[in-house]
């Protein structure tokens, strides 16, 4: 049966069959997008896939309730699962407390843009999980403070303060702070 072609027999299929088909269609259509969010949170391909599958499994048990808007529900599960998951399961995610000292005048492969990108990505990885989630929701998902607050189950004020703290941490992250400013030739 073609994916987008509705089989008339579907109308008389058992409810569980129809529900499973809807679930699988959702996975096919939307899970890549959710995987990207998972990757931004976990910073590891395998962990992102694991987080996504875990979230989908949780969503499946409540599918009959969330069919009308499953994506936002799964995103909520995904972000909250990430926030409460712990390092034991996430052996791949052990952000270092201290940055390795860059060697003086050490050339960065790939040029200044690539190096700046790597530094920013690493700095995002050093954010606490909750702050990282707020940053991803606000600046990747482009969600409002109110929507972010609702998804995370916290107040808009907390979203605002967590966002401010996260951005402040990013701006003073040593990797970013120590980078020479290409426009001035000095440090930022």
């Amino acid at each position: 049966m073609p994916r987008n072609g509705r089989n008339p027999a579907a109308a008389v299929r058992p409810a569980s069959d129809a529900r499973t088909a809807a679930f699988e269609e959702f996975v096919v259509a939307r899970s890549e997008r959710l995987l990207r969010t998972a990757y931004l949170l976990t910073r590891d391909h395998a962990l992102a896939e694991d987080l996504l599958q875990t979230s989908l499994a949780k969503a499946w048990s409540s599918w009959h309730r969330i069919e009308s808007d499953p994506e936002s529900y799964v995103r909520r599960i995904l972000v909250n699962t990430f926030s409460t998951w712990w390092r034991r399961r996430w052996n791949g995610e052990l952000p270092t407390e201290e940055l390795p000292e860059p060697a003086a005048n050490e050339p960065r492969s790939g040029g200044p843009d690539v190096a700046a990108s790597t530094d920013l990505w690493d700095a995002v990885g050093r954010l606490p999980k909750r702050q990282r989630a707020v940053i991803v929701l606000r600046f990747y998902e482009d969600m409002s403070e109110a929507a972010t607050a609702e998804l995370l189950g916290i107040s808009p004020g907390t979203v605002k303060s967590q966002t401010a703290k996260a951005l402040a941490k990013l701006r003073i992250d040593p990797a970013i702070l120590d980078r020479p400013d290409p426009s001035t030739g000095g440090s930022r």
Partner: peptide
Amino acid sequence: DLRRELRTRAS
């Protein structure tokens, strides 16, 4: 910068 970085990494 941050938005661009997140979109790039997300892909």
